[in-house]
Design a protein around this nucleic acid. Structure first.
Lengths: 199, 199, 199, 199
DNA sequence: CATGAATGAGATTTCATTCAT
DNA sequence: TATGAATGAAATCTCATTCAT
């Protein structure tokens, strides 16, 4: 396996430093050092620091919304689920998987979304706009079959996001060193969600 | 009503700018300008920028942990609750009230906790250490009376935090301009929590 | 004995702080604090910081050159001395006495003379110009009577200054806490000077 | 001959400005301007202003204490001297040589030693501790052979330092523009010292 | 292309000095 | 007259960005 290209090493380094220091707190010097290149070289690959942030968030955005990945979530949403439990398990597992694969992205995204209205707009447009309608349809389908409480789907989405996101926050940021039993957490989260959203 | 003291104007300005730009992104120039004072004057009131952050977060920390306020939550936790619903309502209302009174503090605290391990340590020590044990006892009391599911109390706390915190995030930061029906949100959150944590 | 006037307390405080931090390093805030007055009050007594320095050095300059005091040294110089030892003892004792009474002045003067050409000029003009000619005459008188080596008087003055000043430097600045036997030091300095300048 | 490196130009400029204005009075702006570089560039070469002072004094400290140079003085001290004159000439010439090569260092060192206890401690430890014991042994050897007065060696060292240092002060700082006959000064200083320390 | 030295705008902080009370 | 809050110029230091090699 060849050494990753300089460009990719920079992106990886930037991701780490952004996660640790925030976008404003991260210095191009630190990023270049961690990538093992000269500071000037960094600007051969990216016109400026914001472009680097875009490059870091870009793949994440793609991972969430780009056709092939979104298609997976969308597929889950479109599929007919026999039970609320099955539906929740499919969604939650997919998101937990994403979280486990990219904890740093989660952190950077949360930090920068707090600060950058523009990023919030992009997320709203590319994530919410794409995922919410299918999610709503899936909820309505379950609700019409009497498998789910009559909660407005957007509120159900927020509740689910709060539960899964809160777990991600504690698990990967606030107390990453604690003794976590991830499988138990997942099971209990699902049980809790299922009971909370049961008819 | 007299003009608020310069010191208080600075704190208010800093709170706003920190919330908008983050601690690192906020400039003392911007804070001083918004407070309507010269930049140098700012340092007559606070030895440095970090002290200003402390002054912004301090009241929040006090609001959460200082005896008289903590006592209120602690009182809620110590009291005997006739039902899970009553217990949840007491806790959630208290936290929602805090959130509604200090949305900017919530935002700054979240941002900085993501970045500053030291702040996480302080919160862990002053908030978690004080509130968790009484919360655990309250849960165990309810559980022993068969009013609550046999969830480990710390996990229950995380689930509740996720639900309430997620709401706070959407409500006050991500989409503060949306058409929110706060009373309905509160009611549904409580219903959801109560069902999810029911035996 | 009444409390010294505010003005004098400021001068005393300034002298200490100048000695500890140098003129540039001393802050008006520190001086005011040590004098026990408000910073603004300081400028009621002195138009600016340089005037304070002048007020600190002024009395010293007067002590060295002002008629009544200079007259004492001058008197010593004009007097007929029976021996080199007596001559040296008179001069050295006078200077040691000055040093012991005002160690801080010595320090401030040395520091600022290193930095301020203007101060060097003033000292040259008021001290050197006044004291050197009588000193030269005294030397020449001793030399003509065969009591002193044929050293050019200015060089003799420099040698004496080096010996006494070097002692002052070690005694009051570099190692003020050492176990000093001042009387022995004086005796040995005189013996050394007398031998060194003997015919 | 190539232009000296930027780093060396900065050190040379700093040395001059420190000598003229003192450490506190010297501004990085002035140093950068004299070195012909941008102010920011200065901090590429030295982490902060104090490091620049260290870089200016460092070579001096090395020149005085670093093995090869100290060894030279130490060699002089260890050697058997046939007469007090030869001993004094060896020591004084060595120190005068150092002084002539680095007058600015002498000045900066004196200024900062007056102000910085820490620097005094370093000098005490690295210079005094290394040179004093050999000096004492050399004196005792001369004294036991009846070639030198029974002066405690440390006092002899102070007397010599006063004479040589006083000369350095007048020669290089207070009146550098005067008409100096350095060879005569050296000769007379040695004669004076030899007579003063003779048995 | 990669480098790393250099830049200069801007950030935080200090401090002598002013002025309304 | 004394106060102390306020000022703003200037000092130290940072950092994204440029450019000759």
């Amino acid at each position: 396996m060849p050494r990753p290209s300089a460009r990719n090493r920079v992106i990886a380094a930037a991701q780490e430093v952004f996660a640790e220091e925030g976008f404003v707190g991260a210095t191009t010097r630190a990023i270049a050092a961690r990538a093992g290149i000269a500071e000037g070289t960094l600007f051969r690959h990216f016109p400026d620091k914001r472009a680097l942030l875009a490059a870091v968030l870009g793949p994440f955005a793609r991972d969430v919304v780009a056709p092939e990945v979104t298609r997976q979530v969308l597929a889950l949403l479109e599929r007919d689920h026999d039970s609320l439990e099955a539906f929740l398990a499919a969604i939650v597992d997919d998101r937990l998987d994403l979280l486990a694969r990219h904890p740093a992205w989660f952190r950077v995204l949360l930090q920068e979304a707090l600060l950058q209205p523009e990023l919030r707009r992009v997320l709203e447009e590319h994530v919410a706009a794409v995922l919410v309608p299918p999610f709503e349809r899936a909820c309505e389908k379950l609700q019409s079959r009497g498998l789910m409480a009559a909660v407005p789907p957007r509120r159900a989405l927020r509740l689910m996001s709060g539960v899964v996101g809160g777990y991600g926050l504690f698990r990967h940021i606030l107390a990453p060193d604690g003794p976590w039993d991830d499988e138990a957490e997942r099971r209990e989260m699902l049980r809790f969600l299922a009971k909370g959203l049961a008819p």
